[in-house]
């Protein structure tokens, strides 16, 4: 499968997002995330520095990453702008993922 969002780097799974994550493109990301099920993924790191907008369709992909990819999968979100982190916090998702400025392996 040709991946648009996801890059594997050692045992870190990177998801690079930019522009908008909305009802139009979130289903594409969801398809890519589904391909990770059962792959023993320990850490999923969303790089969102250049993400300017996220809607609930986008939030659902993040909930999916935490719920369905692996029981102990840790989810990180790196470099979120206020516009994105505000929505994450409003939805209570900040309790389940690590919102960080940078990611040190």
């Amino acid at each position: 499968m040709d991946r648009k969002f996801i890059e594997q780097s050692g045992d870190i799974t990177k998801v690079i997002l930019q522009g908008k994550l909305d009802a139009v493109n979130a289903p594409l990301l969801m398809e890519e995330l589904k391909s990770l099920i059962g792959q023993n993924i320990n850490k999923i790191v969303f790089y969102v520095k250049d993400l300017e907008y996220i809607s609930s369709a986008g939030l659902r992909t993040i909930i999916f990453a935490k719920q369905k990819i692996g029981k102990d999968t840790e989810v990180y979100m790196i470099g979120a702008q206020d516009i994105v982190s505000d929505v994450i916090k409003m939805s209570g998702l900040d309790n389940f993922l690590y919102l960080q400025e940078s990611f040190e392996d």
Binding site: E52, Y53, I54, S55, A57, I83, D86
Partner: peptide, 12 residues
């Protein structure tokens, strides 16, 4: 930020 929040609400 305001504009983006409005956009978000409308998209929903």
């Amino acid at each position: 930020k305001f504009v983006n929040q409005v956009r978000l609400c409308c998209e929903e």
